[in-house]
Design a protein around this nucleic acid. Structure first.
Length: 597
RNA sequence: GCACUCGUAGCUCAAUUGGAUAGAGCACCUGACUACGGAUCAGGAGGUUUGGGGUUCGACUCCCUACGAGUGCACCA
């Protein structure tokens, strides 16, 4: 908590003690920002304490208000509306608040918590390129990691690659039959796109075969089971599990192409990972845990040797953990991976950024580990994000209605280039600099668009709106930063040194300055909140409000026309601090800000 | 059928976790100084918070109910 707020709470605590003999520590006192239509900056709600004061809400507020303004260093005035005590803060207290922020070069960096958190995100299948849904996942995971780091945690960014299973075999079969040994080089296609092509091809071939079989008199179910290409894919999976060298070679070659493709996308969007897990390595883990659970009587075995857990006391169903033939299922390998992660890193928390269609899976996963008294069970958190819809409805990869990640980034960059050229403000930029700027802006627009919405909520991706660069958008915030940068360049030219600033000379503030400082002071608290709630959208919302509020100041107050040199210098320092907070906030979202645009 | 999630301005999203007259952006209308960057700013219009009940000083928020939308309920992953 910043010191201004703490000081006020202390005063209130003292006041309650002196006036009503109520013992209420400052950390139990809650203050809220005053609504703009009332005078004041902080509001104390008196309803909840009237039972202790034995006075009406108004009377309680009046007595407390009188007490607070007796000390003129913080509160200059008060007013009461019903049970709301609104407090006005002196300019000197605001200036003091700003001074502390300005002098603290690591403002917004929270003290180390000495705790480790693993954040798993992205976790794609290796049979098709990344799409818009993955982008929401990736941006969320990356941003959350940045937020947690800044909030003082040690963060391990993990990616669990789904590199085995029937879906991989599908593209392998199509490729080996129709691929003509083409490669990313010979085809000119990015590796993940090349593989995706064959995954789609498999689906077409499969459907055609099903239709033929139905025409030949089979039922739909029969046809789906008997289709030759599906049988071949299944055989390939068996070959793979048996370690057949030819199959493994093809699998390795094709997966490598996909990894190269993914890596190029990751690099382009500026995200990275500390640790990669491959399901082909971890899918057999978890059987030990099943045995452990059996001997502890947490699990039970049925007559056919399959292993189950009964979660009906928890309101869920029975859940299979091991097939009758002894092979693992999805949850088995996730149990194993959870254990592996913990033994390797010994974290306090483990966050999984995974779509909300897997809510049930993670509920079960956590419950099982809790029942087994695993020390890491309680630290498991499923950051369940909502699906991304298109105006045309749901994205479906098989129906070709997905928005491809690489294409989308390309389009955003082109749109940024178009807007920038129209406005014509970057003369003097080299072609490389211009391209770098378009990339920053296009990606900034896209990331902000996806991150500003509460992660838990399903969201609509409207392509037209996403390329708008006005209003509540990434480029709006980037623009605010670029404009302040321009101010600071000019100040430097004029040799205005904010290091020489004597804060004692500053005695009063413009309303817009006061309001902006009021927002600025909340930055560390916002980071803490975003870290606690695993919600980058809070930062996105915050930095927009901050930029918007600063723009009001910028529009109303002239800086270089100010005749008082101390005041001029103050406004430069003030602008500098806002720019710095904007840059830090945007970094938490994984967005870069330009000096010119 | 059972379970979970959601329903806020024409559209996309907020709402300090139970607080005041529910706020932003887009779109629409009106306006902004020879100043520092107009990708900006100010103003207007737009709401029975899906409907109905309940809990209390006070409800978008909590409980019940109806309606609507989505997701999950494989010896798939």
């Amino acid at each position: 908590m910043n010191s201004l707020e703490l000081d006020i709470k202390k005063k209130i605590s003292q006041g309650l003690n002196t006036l009503f003999n109520i013992q209420l520590d400052e950390d139990k006192i809650s203050l809220q920002p005053t609504k703009p239509e009332f005078k004041g900056s902080f509001t104390f709600v008196t309803f909840s304490i009237t039972k202790l004061t034995n006075k009406s809400p108004e009377e309680t507020g009046k007595l407390l208000g009188e007490y607070l303004v007796k000390d003129p260093s913080i509160c200059s005035a008060y007013n009461i509306v019903k049970g709301f005590l609104n407090l006005e803060i002196t300019d000197s207290a605001w200036i003091k608040t700003f001074q502390a922020i300005y002098l603290d070069k690591s403002f917004g960096k929270l003290t180390p918590k000495n705790k480790k958190i693993m954040v798993e995100y992205s976790s794609p299948n290796t049979n098709k390129p990344l799409h818009l849904g993955h982008l929401r996942n990736i941006f969320l995971g990356y941003s959350l990691s940045e937020i947690l780091k800044t909030a003082g945690y040690e963060v391990i960014k993990a990616n669990l690659i789904n590199d085995r299973g029937i879906h991989i075999c599908k593209s392998m079969i199509a490729y080996s039959q129709y691929g003509n040994s083409e490669t990313p080089d010979t085809s000119g296609l990015k590796g993940d796109h090349l593989i995706g092509k064959y995954y789609v091809m498999f689906d077409k071939l499969y459907k055609a075969e099903i239709e033929q079989l139905i025409a030949a008199g089979n039922t739909k179910e029969e046809a789906e089971k008997k289709a030759p290409i599906m049988l071949q894919a299944q055989k390939l999976l068996v070959n793979w599990e048996n370690g057949d060298s030819e199959t493994i070679d093809l699998w390795k070659k094709m997966n490598q192409w996909v990894y190269d493709g993914f890596n190029s996308t990751y690099q382009k969007i500026g995200v990275d990972f500390d640790k990669f897990y491959y399901e082909s390595d971890t899918y057999l883990l978890g059987k030990n845990i099943v045995n452990e659970g059996l001997s502890a009587d947490v699990f039970f075995k049925k007559e056919d040797n399959s292993v189950w857990i009964d979660l009906s006391p928890e309101g869920l169903d029975q859940k299979l953990l091991l097939r009758s033939d002894g092979t693992s299922v999805y949850i088995t390998q996730d149990l194993g991976t959870a254990e592996l992660k913990y033994t390797e890193f010994g974290f306090e928390k483990s966050v999984y950024v995974v779509g909300n269609e897997q809510d049930y899976h993670f509920k079960v996963l956590k419950l099982i580990l809790e029942k087994m008294n695993k020390p890491y069970a309680s630290g498991i958190y499923h950051l369940s994000y909502g699906m991304v819809d298109l105006p045309s409805g749901k994205m479906k990869s098989r129906e070709g209605t997905v928005v491809d990640a690489d294409d989308l980034i390309q389009e955003m960059t082109e749109t940024a280039a178009m807007h920038t050229k129209e406005l014509g403000k970057i003369e003097g930029f080299s072609e490389t600099e211009a391209q770098a700027l378009y990339h920053k802006l296009g990606l900034g627009a896209l990331k902000y668009f996806l991150l500003k919405v509460d992660p838990k909520k399903r969201m609509l991706f409207n392509p037209q709106e996403s390329v708008e660069f006005q209003g509540n958008t990434g480029p709006f915030i980037q623009y605010t930063y670029a404009r302040i940068s321009s101010l600071l360049r000019k100040a430097k030219q004029l040799n205005i040194q904010s290091d020489n600033l004597d804060f004692n000379q500053i005695t009063s503030l413009e309303i817009t300055e006061r309001e902006t400082i009021n927002l600025l002071k909340d930055f560390p608290a916002k980071i803490e909140e975003a870290a606690n709630l695993f919600s980058p959208s809070l930062i996105a919302q915050y930095v927009y409000d901050l930029a918007k509020q600063y723009n009001r100041f910028y529009n109303e107050v002239s800086i270089f026309n100010e005749s008082n040199p101390q005041l001029l210098t103050f406004r430069i320092a003030f602008s500098d601090s806002i720019a710095s907070a904007i840059k830090k906030s945007m970094k938490l979202l994984g967005i870069e800000v330009p000096e010119k645009m």
